[in-house]
Design a protein around this nucleic acid. Structure first.
Lengths: 341, 341
DNA sequence: TGTGTTCTCGTAAACGTTTACGGAAAAACG
DNA sequence: CGTTTTTCCGTAAACGTTTACGAGAACACA
């Protein structure tokens, strides 16, 4: 069924070396024979065996994106990831690379799967998301010298890898600024537990802004949980039980906001009327919820493309003439004012 | 960095053949030498090169799951897929197989990517989701003889492949039954456009049940659009403009329901009060929406496991002693009654 | 002792590529 | 016409595995 380079060679009565060179666009092959090879490849429905190429070249021509639920999370925060993956895939395809996403089992935080990908050389590089403050994946990859890029920053590693992040700190601060400008002084923050880095950044911005406005940071108004609806639902009542309850809540995540709004509804509190609600990362849910949720929107698809570009620029095989470069960027989140605050 | 089987052989002063046999648990190797090989593999941090194995064996030891947005859809219906992927991955891992998810660009409906996966032999089999009524992917795969399984049925192909589906027809009928029992007779259905098979099945069940109750099927109460929030938002007003508007709406999808409820809210119509709302495929959104949406829940993770099992059973290399079997199953959706109807 | 069996291992080929090397033919140049 | 350069292609090795085959040693049995 599958035709190999040998079939082409036999069919054309030339050597496999020539066939390979013709296919790979090498210069030292007659224009005429190249034509014939290309044509034969088409009629014989040839396409190169990846294992063969990889083995010989020591490169798989594919990039792995690690995807995995957090413990307690069944959902991966995927509405967030899909457009990102589309952007990644588009840019990688331009360079002849495949994007594969590898799933981990919930709970082990990717270490085992990551080792597997690296050790069996299934990909030439990996893209990490949901970076943590201290990230063992980053430590591991830098230690074994495997190329990677991250979506999100981390304190781990030697910063010698490309990274693209969103400015959660500024978004947290902006959210507070906006709420203060609208008269709020009791502002709660609901963020992910675990040491997901964007949670830290968000909270740092939140704190900084509060202080700038001369508002004391009240620990009772800060709560955390897994990044899902259930956690938002459970955790929101905590801040409401404060001696001096909030008049505004900032959620770090749309799923938590959904759960939180449910809890509020059951307490007879209407977002947009009795409570200002802001969420940091915008998704379609925020837009179509009633009331529509004010949120901060990332440019996910362009980010995916850019991240791919940054990763490629760091790889010797794909870097431009000036050699590999390590780039690190932080992109803004854009406020989308809607009806919930 | 990466140690090969040759390194082990040199280190132990034995031949690579013996090393390979020891590693692969073959019988014709001394228990003692096997021990030494295993130990050396550990200390030298050996793990087999996938390209090498694949090339020799003609098998990649990985299964591809095709994932891709529909035209007009940025979202993939992922909340639906993730638990399924978790189940798939878990079962495949038991048999030493990796699950890779391959992304397509939006719009081309996977054909190009699928060809690429098949022709470059990146996976030993593929899992297809979102099957269509007439599915060119199925035709293609059967034609070239590439193993696959589907989530969902289709009219394409010779039915000679494993498939696992949900009983959308029964769910559609059950939804109608329930609404009729609660006094509704004007029941709208909002389903996906395109020829996604589950949309057909749902509508068939819906129609059948209506007729069974002696209720005429009113085309004005049936609308369709892409599987996303925007489409639900746009399309719901259409059925409301009917001369004789519905008192209940069944949405085939949670995202469409979200958009639809938004549209209803803007018309001052409250789900659960002024309008009964049912959705066919349950997700966390349904549960945490206000009001919580009555929905039909699939057992996604077990389905993933089962689908993996069915796929494996169909592959000669993994089938049991009785040889490969083609299994086709249809699983029920379980009603979760909540507050919206 | 002779014959057959079992255990264990080495040898070498094969999977499908890419690519360094060299050589023959053609072209260019004087 | 002789020499050098260029163009084009074939040869063969290599990437890291797995595995068919065969052989030597040990053992069993008569």
């Amino acid at each position: 069924m599958a035709s190999s380079i040998h079939d082409l060679a036999r069919h054309l009565n030339i050597s496999i070396g020539t066939v390979s060179r013709a296919l790979n666009g090498r210069a030292d092959v007659n224009a005429d024979t190249r034509q014939r090879v290309l044509e034969a490849a088409r009629t014989l429905n040839y396409s190169p065996n990846q294992s063969g190429r990889s083995l010989r070249q020591g490169a798989t021509h594919s990039i792995a994106f690690m995807m995995q639920p957090h413990p307690g999370d069944q959902q991966y925060g995927e509405p967030f990831f899909i457009p990102l993956l589309i952007g990644l895939q588009a840019r990688l395809a331009e360079s002849g690379l495949d994007l594969i996403v590898v799933m981990g089992a919930p709970g082990d935080y990717q270490q085992e799967r990551l080792r597997r990908v690296v050790e069996t050389r299934r990909a030439d590089a990996v893209v990490l998301a949901w970076t943590r403050r201290e990230d063992e994946r980053i430590d591991y990859l830098t230690q074994v010298g495997f190329p990677f890029a991250t979506l999100g920053r981390s304190r781990s590693g030697t910063k010698s890898y490309p990274s693209l992040d969103l400015d959660f700190e500024k978004a947290g601060a902006d959210a507070v600024d906006r709420l203060v400008a609208r008269g709020h002084r009791r502002i709660a923050a609901i963020r992910p537990s675990l040491d997901l880095n964007f949670g830290y950044l968000f909270l740092a911005g939140y704190r900084k802004a509060l202080r700038r406005h001369g508002i004391e940071v009240d620990p009772e108004l800060i709560a955390s949980g897994f990044i899902n609806e259930a956690a938002g639902y459970e955790v929101t009542p905590q801040v409401m039980r404060s001696k001096n309850p909030p008049t505004a809540i900032i959620f770090n995540n749309d799923a938590m906001a959904l759960g939180g709004c449910k809890a509020l509804a059951e307490m007879g509190i209407r977002p947009g009327h009795d409570m200002a609600v802001t969420v940091i990362v915008d998704t379609p849910l925020c837009r179509y919820f009633s009331p529509a949720l004010t949120a901060f929107r990332p440019a996910l698809e362009p980010m995916g493309q850019r991240l791919a570009e940054m990763l490629l620029a760091s790889l010797p095989a794909f870097a431009g003439p000036d050699g590999p470069r390590i780039m690190r960027e932080v992109w803004p989140l854009e406020l989308v004012a809607r009806d919930s605050d």
